[in-house]
Amino acid sequence: MDFNPAAHDPMIENRTFDEIAIGESASSQRTLTQEDIDLFAVVSGDVNPAHLDPAYAETDLFHKIIVHGMWGGALISALFGTRLPGPGTIYLSQELHFRAPVGLSDTITTTVTVREKKPEKHRIVFDCLCVNQTGQKVITGTAEV
């Protein structure tokens, strides 16, 4: 089973601090499947019925299965580690706001954009954004790498 159909490029390449400009961004797209939710539950141990039990989820706030919030967080992390800055990136901090639920078959476009460069320690601050197929913001936040 291929759990990351977006990732077919056989090579991954980083961009160095000096090469990266403020305003630069990287994006990925991913459609949520039941397998994603199940695997995330297996890895994290988070078996909250809101994510796994359709009968319970029906009675809950959103009336359907929604994915773990940190799945979206992981999509952001994947961009840092594979695209911008790319391989070798050290993740220092991350702030996230979960603004709307993500359900099965939602297609999430994740974008990280360079907001600020800190040359003294070679650190970069990113704006992070996940939107769904209707353009609704589901996650916003900032990260430092």
Partner: peptide, 16 residues
């Protein structure tokens, strides 16, 4: 730095 993307293991979910 340019490196080959590491090949991930295949995962199969068994729900019984």
């Amino acid at each position: 730095m340019c490196r080959p993307r590491v090949e991930l293991p295949e995962v199969r979910l068994s729900r019984h």
